[in-house]
Amino acid sequence: MKILSFSDLHVDYNSAELKRDLTGEIADCIKRIAPDRVIVAGDMAGGAERCIRYIEEIQERSGVPLSYVPGNHSIWAASKDGDSWQQYERLRAHPSSLIDKPLALTDEWVLVGDMGWYDYSFGLTQKTRAEIVKDKSMIWKDSVMARWGMEDEELTDRMLDKLRKQFEQLRGKRIVFANHFIPYVDYAPLSQRPEHPMGKVWNMIRPFMGSTKLGEQLDQYENIEYVIFGHKHWRHGVEERNGKQIVCNPLGYVKEWVTDDFATEIRSAATLIEL
């Protein structure tokens, strides 16, 4: 069984920047690698409607089934689109969704996933919660477009509770886990040059990258053998941590790439897992 993982494809933004539809080129990359299944760990595009359209186009063009978990961009909702729960439920109802639907890959392996979220825990050693909330309102688009009707910490706890129930039910299986957000603080950005403009920005957005609670929960289960995430647009490839294979290899935005060649970048951001 071969699983190909991606995250942070941002097909809408990158297609606009390159002035062409990228779904066919993503599908071509998938066909060349020839996996049994693709998993995308969030931020296919902004909003559920566009995510679903791109998911279906990539599946149709590649001929390979695709599993998806939302990222923060995936649930963005303007006032005319309802709230973020409606976006989340639209994605949950789609056949590609892993939300509340663990997928048996083999008799031995199961794919588990959900969106995840952040609870400011990556930033509370540097700033107070009030300072972090002020930063969020100034620079983080989720403050306007992620409309949950609850605090971020409460949403994180809801996501963790749902995942915990699945992990308990699957103790006898080997698990490939995917969510969008960072589970381990050492993967979160922290600039050693806070006086630099970009260093200041990286440090300001750090609290919105993930949750230490998620990493602690994952580490309680030895049968979770792969942990896939993105959100931070920095590629680490595959690394081992506490007996788990950690996959953080997002595509990110055109302006962040090493080259200006999409075929090179999408292949660099593709991670093949052989079970």
Rank of each mutant, 00 (worst) to 15 (best):
S7F: 01
Q126E: 15
T156P: 00
R158V: 09
R53C: 06
V40Q: 03
E60P: 00
G116K: 08
D161V: 10
D28G: 10
N14I: 00
G82I: 01
L124H: 15
G82K: 02
D119C: 05
I224S: 14
T259M: 02
S191K: 11
D12A: 03
Q217L: 15
H10W: 05
T212R: 15
R20S: 10
D81N: 01
L163R: 12
F229E: 00
L272K: 12
G116I: 06
G237L: 11
E57D: 15
I3A: 15
M198S: 10
I205V: 15
E56M: 05
A188L: 04
L22M: 04
V110G: 10
R50A: 05
R92S: 14
A34Q: 12
L18I: 10
I132Y: 01
I30S: 02
E168M: 15
V144Q: 12
S143E: 08
E195W: 11
E57C: 06
R147E: 03
V133H: 03
S191N: 11
V185L: 02
M145G: 00
E274V: 15
I33Q: 09
Y226L: 11
A104G: 08
W85A: 08
L111T: 09
G210W: 07
D81F: 00
V64M: 09
L170R: 11
E153L: 10
Q245E: 12
L4P: 10
D142R: 02
H180M: 10
E17F: 04
R90S: 07
K101P: 11
W109P: 12
T212Q: 13
L105N: 14
E89L: 13
T23N: 05
W109N: 10
V133T: 09
E154T: 08
D43L: 13
K232I: 14
M145D: 02
Q87E: 12
S5T: 13
L218Y: 07
I246H: 03
I182Y: 00
I52V: 13
K213E: 09
